[in-house]
């Protein structure tokens, strides 16, 4: 397949299709993933082509979905579970945190659970709380889980296949507001390691760390800042647990300034962890404290005001300006 332009949603769909083709042990399960093709159409057409036996409509029972995935995985399957919306993952939280995350470690490697838990996450589609949340810190805080998120179609296509091929349980966060954004997908491009972060746009002045839906926002901010003569070094984390911060440290040692952007609330969020580690590693290079641009420390707001809540280009640029204020 030559490179083609796809939306993120289509790229994920194609990645899932490739995984189903490659390994008969891969099964997709979740609410409305089969006949309907998923509420965001990410599994569109897969049940038709691979059968009800491999793309399975489940009852509305998130905890039961993850629990049954464990039983399937223990008997050699590679379940890919879709949690329909971010807020729906909490009923499954016990199975994910108390069971999935711990079996490999507590058996000293005797048990492997190759389970992928796909979750559309974040806001920006007018869907209010329970449907717009950013739960990544809960899972990144849990040893034994891996947490990754894609920000563009090319990564979506590759990362979902890498996650399914992995022998570890992975929470795979999909930025739902970016499902319809297009980008080039080259199926023959060499794969970038799943748990590596990447400099998405190089710049010498301020390091901007983002992931998932906020990478687009950070890139837009970099374009705007560039017009004012300030070059932002935008890093897409991609993997939230484990974190790959080496490129961030390298960047901050050059720029001396760092802004972390995420939709989730700031309190005890990924930004706090990144700020702490950057401070430990790059203390003598820093010209200012590491700043965070995040959602508010409130429940996700009503749809009418979500644009106020979500970090946007202006808030990122404001933080960039503030790094020059020390």
């Amino acid at each position: 397949m030559a490179a083609e332009v796809l939306t993120l949603g289509k790229a994920l769909n194609l990645g899932l299709r490739r995984a189903l083709e490659r390994d008969a042990k891969v099964v997709i399960m979740g609410e409305d993933v089969g006949k309907l093709g998923g509420v965001f159409r990410i599994t569109d057409g897969l049940q038709k082509d691979f059968g009800e036996d491999r793309v399975i409509d489940t009852p509305l029972a998130e905890s039961g979905i993850i629990g049954t995935a464990i039983g399937l995985a223990l008997r050699g399957y590679r379940p890919v579970c879709e949690i329909q919306f971010d807020g729906f993952v909490y009923p499954a939280y016990d199975q994910i945190v108390s069971q999935v995350a711990k079996m490999h470690y507590r058996s000293r490697g005797l048990v492997r659970l190759p389970i992928v838990i796909r979750i559309p996450f974040g806001g920006g589609i007018g869907a209010v709380e329970h449907h717009s949340e950013s739960p990544e810190a809960y899972f990144a805080h849990t040893p034994g889980l891996k947490v990754v998120t894609c920000s563009n179609p090319a990564d979506g296509y590759t990362m979902i296949q890498q996650a399914i091929a992995s022998d570890d349980p992975i929470v795979f966060l999909e930025p739902k507001r970016r499902y319809w954004e297009k980008g080039e997908v080259d199926a023959e491009a060499p794969a970038f390691p799943l748990h590596s972060s990447r400099v998405t746009r190089p710049g010498a002045d301020v390091t901007v760390v983002a992931y998932g839906p906020m990478v687009r926002t950070a890139l837009d901010a970099a374009t705007a800042a560039g017009e004012d003569g300030r070059q932002l070094d935008v890093i897409d984390l991609r993997s939230l647990s484990p974190l790959d911060l080496s490129p961030v440290y390298d960047s901050v040692r050059r720029t001396g300034r760092c802004v972390v952007v995420h939709e989730a609330p700031s309190n005890v969020g990924l930004g706090a962890e990144i700020a702490a580690r950057v401070t430990e590693e790059c203390f003598y290079s820093l010209e200012s404290p590491v700043l965070r641009v995040t959602g508010f420390d409130t429940p996700y707001p009503a749809a009418r005001v979500e644009e106020e809540y979500l970090p946007d280009l202006d808030r990122v640029l404001d933080a960039v300006d503030r790094t020059y204020g020390w």
């Binding site: 905890s63 039961g64 993850i66 629990g67 049954t68 995935a69 464990i70 039983g71 399937l72 995985a73 223990l74 008997r75 050699g76 399957y77 016990d94 199975q95 108390s98 069971q99």
Partner: peptide, 12 residues
């Protein structure tokens, strides 16, 4: 917590 795990095993 083991109940759905048994269901998954039976499903397999």
């Amino acid at each position: 917590a083991g109940a759905p795990i048994a269901v998954g095993a039976a499903w397999a």
